[in-house]
Amino acid sequence: MSIITEFEKNQKQVKAWNELSKRKVVEHNSLITSIAKMDKTPLKMFELAVSCINTEAPPKDHTVYLSKTELFAFFKVSDNDKHSRFKQAVENMQKQAFFKIQEKKEYGFEFENIVPIPYVKWADYHDEVTIRFSPEIMPYLINLKQNFTQHALSDIAELNSKYSIILYRWLSMNYNQYEHYSAKGGRREEQVETYRNPSISIRELREMTDTMKDYPRFQSLESYIIKNSLKEINEHTSFKVTYEKVKKGRSINSIVFHITKKRRADDNSYKLEDKVYQKAKVQKEQKENLLYAEAMQSKYTKLLLEHFLLSPYEMTNPATMAGLQRNVYPKYDELKDLMGIDGVKKHLSYIYYKQEPYSKGNIAKYLKKAIEQYLPTVKRRGL
């Protein structure tokens, strides 16, 4: 009898998790970049509660309802002590947790300290949990027409560090903008790329992670906040993220992250009903395919191969080849008109000998920058 009961409990938890894994969390970007004065459990509980908000018809009383089954499935707890642990987590959240939000206004900055969930009600004799958001936090969660971020609740569930969650939300904010402007336009290509390769100063990173007084040595900050967080994010979310350190003088001044999306069947599933997005996405894919085909036939592709600036492996990447055809090869045409094809070959030989190792991560961007710097010199000389 006890075995059947335990099986039924597990089945119920699996069903709850399957439902949770389909949810998304939508928040204003100001909340993403705010200082979360809380540990991982209240932060994850807040994200779970936010996923219950129907942004099309938000609750007028700021109240959402969870089940304890959902909560335990989300936190992946099944031991006998889970109810008392839940009670303790709620108490800690209400006593300690708040967001410190900073917004730039016309005459300076405006600061808000907001306790997001001041009221929670539950009973030991039924499954329902009542969660009421504060009126002050609601503008950051509903009526979001612009400057908002949405990410998968299932990704948050797998993260076990406060810093991983904070960094994941910030990376999602940037990558959301990359996807949006890639599909719908409205930004220059260089601007769009910065969303996929966002930069943050060390001071901003410390403020966002609430570590202004912690880990005073950069090596410690890098190990505990950056490396450990990215290890979790890369293992458990839809992102694959690398980073590089940027120096100013002798000190590390900022971090540049490089975000790619893992191939998953449910990528962008929350956008399937956005017909404008889908139409723009199809048009963009068709254009990219055309550029890819043109690049494969281009004489410049052959020249890049001959000068060891492009590998056969990179030729299999449609995005790389489309980027070359769109941004680099037209510049090579200009150079050819000025100096002939030998002038292009001379330029490529120079680039090969001066090439930096970091450029190999994005060869199209590197070659674009190189030719854009060289062409004005050629034109000034009248060569």
Rank of each mutant, 00 (worst) to 15 (best):
S161L: 12
Q297P: 00
I4F: 04
K302A: 04
I255W: 05
M138T: 07
K240H: 12
N54S: 12
L167A: 07
E19C: 03
R23W: 01
F133D: 05
K284I: 07
Q102T: 14
R187W: 01
R326W: 14
E136G: 05
L303Q: 14
S311Y: 01
Y215P: 04
A157T: 10
A157C: 12
S21A: 11
P118S: 06
H307F: 02
Q88V: 02
K231E: 13
S164Y: 11
T316Y: 05
Y107P: 00
K104M: 14
Y277L: 07
A183I: 10
I32C: 11
Y224M: 10
Q150K: 13
S78N: 03
I142D: 02
I252W: 05
I114D: 04
K262E: 03
E204I: 01
V378I: 13
K271W: 11
K302I: 01
L338R: 15
P357E: 13
H83A: 09
I156E: 02
D61M: 01
I200T: 08
F218L: 09
A57S: 12
Y107V: 06
K162P: 02
K100N: 14
F7E: 08
Q13R: 09
G343M: 10
R217Y: 09
T320H: 04
K245H: 01
K12V: 00
P376T: 12
I53P: 05
S164M: 11
Q325T: 09
I363K: 07
T130A: 04
Q373E: 14
F99C: 08
Y181I: 07
L305P: 08
S21M: 08
M138V: 05
L304A: 00
E235W: 08
P198E: 04
K9P: 00
L153K: 10
K40F: 06
S349K: 15
E179C: 06
Y352E: 15
Q286A: 11
A265E: 11
R380E: 13
H62A: 01
Y352K: 15
Q219I: 09
Y181W: 08
I117R: 06
K184Q: 11
T211R: 12
F257N: 05
K104C: 04
R203F: 13
H62Y: 08
F148K: 12
L71M: 09
S229Q: 12
Q286R: 13
K105W: 10
K15Q: 08
E306P: 05
R187S: 02
I363A: 09
S164G: 15
V192I: 15
Y353K: 15
S78C: 00
I371Y: 02
I341V: 15
N234I: 01
K162Y: 03
T41N: 08
R206G: 06
I137Y: 05
Q278V: 08
N10Q: 07
N174W: 12
Q325A: 14
S298Q: 02
A152W: 10
K302W: 00
G185A: 09
L167Y: 04
P198N: 05
